[in-house]
Amino acid sequence: MVAVFGTLGFHPESLIPTIKSSQEVSRVVVFISPRSESKEAADQVEKYCSALGVRFDEVIIPDAYDLLSIAERIQDEVLDSRERGELAIFNIAGGTRVMSAAALLVCILEGLNAVYVHDDTGQEIMLPSLHMRYSSALTEMEKEVLMFLLKHQGRELSQKDIAAGMGLHKATVNHHVKMLLEKGAVRLVPKDKDNRTKVVKVEDSMRLLLR
């Protein structure tokens, strides 16, 4: 079973070549903005799928310019598809620049095949990606520390606070924070009212690595 995913703008032609070239497509999922032109393009893709006897699902992205919320919505669908046991291919050629970037980001993070269709030639270009989750570059303990930090994002947490909060030895936390610093997953910043103490900060986007 193959699921073709695609961000779609106003032109169905950006997605059709991928449905055509993929074998055993059982489902097509399009991500569109609420604009009527996108809906019309999606309707045309739906007609095409219906003629092929392929299931068609449409996901409306309420804000086509909010990168992280789009990436999260796309990731939900991709993870759901993985649970269904589908092989997924993602066409990132359509939609806004932000929608396309969000889709590519999810492809990199989830290890999906991503393709781009050339505007003029209609040629499909496969983009480099590994079939492995990007988060596999982190250890389980590193993920747990990140999760703890994201859960308490509003607070200023030193390594000592993290150790106390997670019930771990301070040296253990120091080691994992050091590794996360080397990997660029967290950063140390001076505490607001005490410059001598450093607190560990994590970017909101790291959430995408931990789902």
Binding site: A137, K183, M206, L209
Partner: peptide, 9 residues
């Protein structure tokens, strides 16, 4: 928005 790029990946 800083994207979740890791340095060892």
């Amino acid at each position: 928005i800083k994207l979740p790029v890791l340095r060892n990946a």
